[in-house]
Simulated assay, not measured.
Amino acid sequence: MEDTINLKSIINRELMIIDSLTDSKKGILEELCYLLQEKKYINDYQKFLEDIYLRESEGVTGIGEGIAIPHGKSIAVKDTTVAIATLKNEIEWETLDGENVKVVILFAVKDTDATTTHIVLLQKVATLLARDTFIKKLKNINTKDELYDLIINS
């Protein structure tokens, strides 16, 4: 039960996009950053986007199975959180399995949260992604409520 409460502190329906029509990695990263700024989780869109690309340059964030987990640790992040998008159509992404991406889970990490509970919570989300049944359900989500419930109750 405690895990559920903790995940609720970083998983928000308002930071979810279902069936995004974007057709590129750049497009979805910009769309998610815009959403984070609009909902006031970041205070500098451009700085956060730069920090995401800095992390992207350090290694692959496409973990396979159609999932990418880009992330940025940044002074632009006001509150550590996760923004999630499912895509109407798969997009190209550098991935461990060479496959395109259908779900993007963007971790926005406040620079001062690098070693705190928030990172542990983010790791819990990553742990969910190691389960085949979770991934299968994730790729077939139709609503924000379904997505939220899947994450919180898994």
Rank of each mutant, 00 (worst) to 15 (best):
D132A: 15
I63A: 00
T127N: 12
K102E: 14
R55V: 10
L32M: 06
E94Y: 13
E90A: 15
I52A: 09
L150V: 14
K8T: 06
K102M: 14
I42S: 09
L106M: 12
K73A: 06
K88S: 10
G64R: 01
L36K: 07
N140Q: 08
N6D: 14
E65S: 11
D3E: 15
V120H: 02
V125P: 02
A108V: 02
K124M: 14
I28N: 01
K136Q: 10
I10N: 02
T127G: 11
T95D: 10
N142D: 09
A76W: 00
M1L: 04
V125T: 09
D19G: 02
V101R: 01
N153R: 12
V101T: 05
T86D: 07
N153A: 08
I52P: 00
L129E: 02
Y41K: 08
A85R: 07
I91N: 03
I69N: 04
T95P: 09
E31S: 06
K137P: 00
V103P: 04
L7P: 00
N153V: 12
T116V: 01
T81V: 14
K88F: 13
F134M: 04
G59E: 12
E38P: 05
I135C: 03
T61G: 05
I151N: 00
E50N: 15
S9V: 01
V77P: 00
R131K: 15
I91S: 08
I63Q: 02
K124G: 04
L29G: 10
T143C: 14
A130G: 08
I17P: 03
A126K: 08
I151L: 00
K78M: 05
G27F: 10
I75Y: 10
I119H: 07
K40M: 06
L147T: 05
A68E: 01
K139G: 06
G66Y: 01
E58A: 10
E146C: 01
D113G: 07
F134H: 05
I17K: 00
I42F: 08
I152K: 04
L36H: 12
L122H: 09
A126S: 15
T143M: 13
K110F: 10
E90H: 10
L7H: 00
N43R: 12
K144F: 11
I75D: 08
T143R: 09
E56Q: 03
R13P: 06
K139I: 13
T95G: 14
D3Y: 11
V120S: 08
K25M: 11
R13Q: 15
E94S: 14
N142A: 03
